[in-house]
Design a protein around this nucleic acid. Structure first.
Lengths: 240, 240
DNA sequence: TATAAAAATTGGTCTAGACAACTATATGTA
DNA sequence: TACATATAGTTGTCTAGACCAATTTTTATA
């Protein structure tokens, strides 16, 4: 179960082990876990190492601790963090819908003033502008425009965008996306939106702008989306 | 600075000390903190204790670590968690607006079926229904209805609601609110909403439903709000 | 039996190290 | 000078305990 000679940290192995048990149902919501000291004894590791794993799982919403009583499986994992942020694709799959995408524009343009500000670059410096219709079960769900600086993300192609933009940024380029700010507002569809989304002009839509950053606050991308309000609700779980 | 004989944990004292330095500007975004070993030496505490404080501050978005380089002050604190969740009041203040409230209904009613489901109680068991118009700089911002089980939260009065509902639930009753789920959707104002919010019927509004829970997933309250889209944007920062 | 006291159990905090992994800097060499 | 190498500094992981705080269980007592 736990390999002490592995280069993978012990606390991380234990984390995954417990998460597996929760997902497989061996540990059910409300169940008490064996005490920390028992894990330490069982796997012949230090209790502090066990606590390191537990603490991470508590922060991630899998467990909660009660002093003097024990450590318990949370009722359901609180989906905090960038759920749906990593990709439209994952968001739709989580909703049980089949994601699709239709590229309608891919070009390099001089950055509009507001986009330049969000990306912390000079006005009119080159940025990729990627316009897509996002589909769910073959029906238009959102109209999405992504802006990325050509300086920060080099060598972007249409083909990469169609495969997986995030995989390219994080995997190939080695950036580590750390956090994002989203601004959500209600509006009504204008003529362009109504055409692409196949809804009436004036129908309610949800505008979502997402700015993505690295650890040191370097902006990586700006995404502006218009979602059909009749098909999309924004859900978010938050932990104190 | 650090009192080792205090009943307040050392790691917590150190946390507060560093947060203070960040807020006072002694530590600026991007600055490297003194190394962990130096803190340990300076305050004559164990490095593991220093790490416990650092780790918490990293999780909370105040700091970030780079192996081999050091620990740095984050560019700005990522406001993750229940920002604006604790109260409309705080949300408005953070936006530089003067919050106000106008109670339009306070009564105990039999729980409607959907509310009962959300609160995990029997249909028609008694719940408080609290309807308020929320004001920002004296202008209507949202129409808000709160449902709370009379069993779980006893002795609620109009006066308490006007003062601070959360303070009563957390302070007086000793519940510890742990997490919440919010569902956000776009819509257009119906006749009732348009009257209370002083907007045209059909104008865009943002519907926000918030379900609040304790650690063990006991539901505490359900809040349904209709915000004026022309005055309100929902902002959220997320950390990976 | 009912109550109070003691003991056991569990998570919370803390120590004083050790070595690994990674980064930056100084040093030596071609 | 340019490049490889050694060295020092930093965070990352881990140990084997210790004692504290809160809760539960057991035991003793009235």
């Amino acid at each position: 179960m736990i390999n002490k000679n592995s280069p993978i940290p012990i606390y991380y192995q234990l984390e995954e082990l417990i998460k597996d048990q929760i997902e497989k149902g061996d540990l059910k919501p409300g169940d008490a876990l064996p005490p920390e000291r028992e894990y330490a004894e069982t796997y012949q590791i230090s209790r502090m190492t066990v606590r390191q794993a537990f603490t991470k799982l508590v922060n991630d919403g899998y467990l909660y601790r009660l002093q003097g009583k024990g450590t318990f499986v949370a009722e359901r994992k609180v989906e905090q963090g960038l759920q749906g942020l990593t990709s439209f694709t994952e968001d739709m799959r989580a909703r049980g819908l089949e994601p699709g995408s239709q590229l309608i524009n891919f070009e390099v343009i001089p950055a509009p003033v507001r986009i330049a500000k969000y990306l912390s670059i000079e006005e009119s410096s080159p940025v990729y502008e990627i316009k897509r219709i996002r589909l769910a079960d073959q029906v238009p769900m959102a109209l999405e425009t992504t802006y990325i600086s050509t300086d920060k993300v080099k060598g972007l192609t249409q083909e990469i965008v169609n495969r997986s933009l995030y995989e390219y940024i994080e995997g190939t380029l080695g950036y580590k996306i750390d956090h994002a700010r989203q601004i959500i507002e209600s509006s009504v569809a204008n003529q362009i939106e109504s055409e692409f989304l196949r809804i009436q002009e004036g129908a309610p839509i949800m505008l979502i702008q997402r700015n993505t950053y690295l650890e040191d606050e370097t902006p990586i991308e700006v995404v502006k989306s218009s979602y059909r309000a009749d098909r999309y609700k924004f859900m978010i779980d938050m932990k104190r």
